[in-house]
Structures are given as C-alpha cells and as structure tokens.
Amino acid sequence: MKEEVLLLGTNKTLVAVVTEPEQKPNSDLPAVILFNAGLTHRVGPNRIYVKLARQLTEMGMIVVRFDLSGVGDSTVRLDGVSFEAGVADDARQVMDYVSQTRGSKHFFLMGHCGGALISLGIASVDPRAIGIVMINAEGGDTQWSEYDRKRKTSQYYENYYSRDAITSSEKWKKLLTGKAAYGSILRNIFVNILWHRVSTAAFKLKKRLSPDQEAGTSPEIAALYSTIPALVERKVPIFIIYSQGSSGLERTQFLLRDAKKKIGSSTKLKIEIMPRCDHTFTLLESQQRLYNTIADWCTANMPTPSRVTAP
C-alpha cells in the first residue's frame, strides 16, 4: 500500500491523499472517493477515512480522500459559484484526475454524515458513480437536527444517572449530605430527560401522521432523497449504514416512504443498522465492524463487465 498527497483542481487548491496498492491497480475496479464528513478534514471523524482507505486498498482499489474547497486544507473557491455547484465541480475534478492518471472508469462514492449526502448528490449527476455508501447521513435540516439534539441530550442524562451516578458512592454522598447541585439534577431529570422525551415523541407522531412526505424537511434534503429511485433504476447500488438509534435513520426511513413504493424490493438499496456504534464510531471495535461491513458490500457490488456500461 502506498500513499501520496496531491494538490488537485484547476488551481491546485484541493488537498487530496491517494491510497493505492503497491502494484499497478486494476483499472477495471472502481476507485473510491471519500467526501468530507461535514467540516472535518479528510482524515474523517476518529480518523475512520484513513483506516477505511487502507483496508479497501488491500482489496486492490484506489481510494482518494480529499478536502472540498473551503474545508480542511483546501482553500475557498474564488469564482463565486454556489456551494452545490462548487462541490460538484470539485468532485468532478478529482474523478477526472483519477481517471486520467490511474485509468479508473467508475467510482464508489462514500461519505459520513454530510459526506454521505454529498455522495448521493454527486452520484445522481455523474454517471461514473456506480455505487454509493452513506454512513450516518445526518444534518442539513433544522427540525430534524433539533429533534436529534433533544433525543441525544435525553439519552445522555438517562445514561449518566441510570448507569454512572447511581453506582457512584461519591455522588450518593453528595446527594445525601446536601452538597449536590439539586437544581441542576431536577432540571436534568424534568427538562433534559422527561420533557425532551415528550417533545421528541410528539415530533415523531406528527411526522408519522403527516400525509406530506416532505413536510418539515428541508427542500434540499428532500430533493436529494428523491433521486434514489432513479439511481436504483440506473442499477447503482446504494448502501445506507446507520448506527443503531440514529435519528438520521428515522429521517431516512421517513423520506424513503414514497421511494420504496417505486423501488419495490430492489436489492440495490440496502440499509444496515449497526448496534453499539456512536455517530463517529469512537470505539475501535465499532470502527473495525464498519470497515468490514463496507468491504463486504464492495465485494458484493464489484462491477462485472456485463453490468457496467461506459459513462
């Protein structure tokens, strides 16, 4: 395995790291592009992009991790184009480079969180994309973000009091000797746990009863998800991975209600829920499960000559 850092794009402003096998890679295999997880630079949260790239390279694939303009070490664009157009252009330039220098004709696009949404958006407009891996796609949506915040805050305090504080002799001593912050405890129990639970349950109920699939969802996010049926028709496999309990999963399932009617039981769309993983896969064991899951999916979705058509 070898790694090379490159400055790509018209003005050489996109900082990218290419990970590839020592031997000349098979250009029939798709190359992998990893898109920034939100504003986290190209190493990914908890460095999962670096380790994922290295594992996928062991399968013979070329993997490119790069910073979009204005993120990480890549400088901002000075041409005044919109964010969406800039992202599309950055992605195109990186894919062009890999095609020209490594001969790759097709790509698996992958990303975590915001990077998952970008992968979907790019795949919908670039026919060179023949597979998408979306890891914990979240964000870009005020109402769902607020729901997510309340749900996780409630979970945090519930875990804190029911698993940690209750077994701490030091905390019991403070509680029983008048040294605890009682106002804070009451606020956490009644507002941060109970009220947030009620509030999030009401949000979920409202969504479930809403006949309008896009109600309360940002038009941009809804538009992104609406591209999924066309991608499935294009025979682009889509792998949606969520940590168990992720509210992004709830949003995705909500947004896929209508799409699933069109897609039917297509095996092109796969959703996998990974237990005992936090949003950014902090624990090493959860990271390894993620890499293995993605590697297995890549193996199962490697193109065969008959399946791939020239872009």
Binding site: N159, Q244, D278
Partner: peptide, 10 residues
C-alpha cells in the same frame, strides 16, 4: 461522554 450521548444500548 460521547458514548452516553450517542448510545441507547451503552
């Protein structure tokens, strides 16, 4: 703290 925040089955 991260696990408390994200994991229901911590």
């Amino acid at each position: 703290d991260k696990l408390r925040y994200f994991l229901a089955d911590m």
